[in-house]
Amino acid sequence: MSGVLNVTDLKTGYGKQEIVHGISITAQPGHITCVFGPNGSGKSTVIKGIAGLLPPWAGKITLGDADLTGLPVHEMVRKGIVMMPQGGGVFPRFSVMENLRMGGYSLKDTREVDDRIETLIADYPNLQRRRNVAAGSLSGGEQMMVAIARALVPNPAFVMLDEPSAGLSPALVNETMDRVLALRERGVGVIMIEQNIREALPVADSVYIFAGGKNKFSGTRDDIRSDEHLMSIYMGGTVSE
């Protein structure tokens, strides 16, 4: 399934606490959509709501003409939306190949899963050589490769990344952004939550800034006039400030 991913007036949260107060996002296929905002602004909560990890309390989620609102995680994966958690979330005791097979859990045809894995792992020579090694023994950069390759196994239309640069060295941050650009080159749409604005902004095709669980800005990086303008919005100001 492909098409534009639209999130309209989404409200969700945890327990009885509403965190996201009617946020809307439009993500284009084959584009990188970056979401910025201070801690507590609702960034991660939004993508958990899109992924099916949190139920939508209000609003609508569509991919092309298909209404995906309220679908559980495994159904969202089948529809083409995959979330990669913060830090990649590899299974450290599982081998590289076992981790990649976990990415195909929503697919019924095991032969199809194996074929996709072999195609993907060929793009990552380091993983190809270490396919039977426990993922926990890999470097941080290699673990990120495993996580990204695993997310690609179900052949998604969109991959959502929750702060992929968190805890990485500057060199690995640059490598991670290169991996994000490679997803775009594959035609995969990316929604990326990031705190590292300086590194993420240059790769963004579109930008959203959240504050207090609400949209404060949507546009392109060229619409951000200056660092001062960006920080004003980031800290909860208005676009005109």
Score class of each variant (00 low, 15 high):
M1P: 12
M1H: 14
G3D: 07
V7M: 10
V7G: 02
T8D: 15
Q17L: 15
S24V: 09
T26E: 13
Q28C: 05
P29C: 14
I32R: 04
F36L: 12
N39L: 03
S44D: 06
T45W: 01
G49I: 02
G52T: 03
K60S: 14
I61W: 00
T62E: 10
L63R: 03
G64W: 03
D67Y: 06
L68F: 01
V73Y: 00
M83Y: 06
M84H: 04
Q86R: 14
G88T: 04
G89I: 05
F91C: 04
F94M: 15
S95N: 04
R101F: 05
E112D: 11
R116N: 13
E118I: 10
A122F: 08
D123Y: 12
P125E: 09
L127R: 00
R131N: 06
V133E: 08
A134Y: 04
A135H: 00
G136R: 08
S137M: 14
S137H: 13
S139Q: 13
A147T: 01
I148K: 06
I148V: 15
V153N: 01
L161M: 14
S165T: 12
G167N: 13
V173W: 09
T176D: 02
D178E: 15
R179S: 11
L181S: 13
E185Q: 15
M192I: 11
V203C: 10
F217L: 04
F217T: 00
S218W: 02
G219V: 05
T220F: 04
Y234N: 05
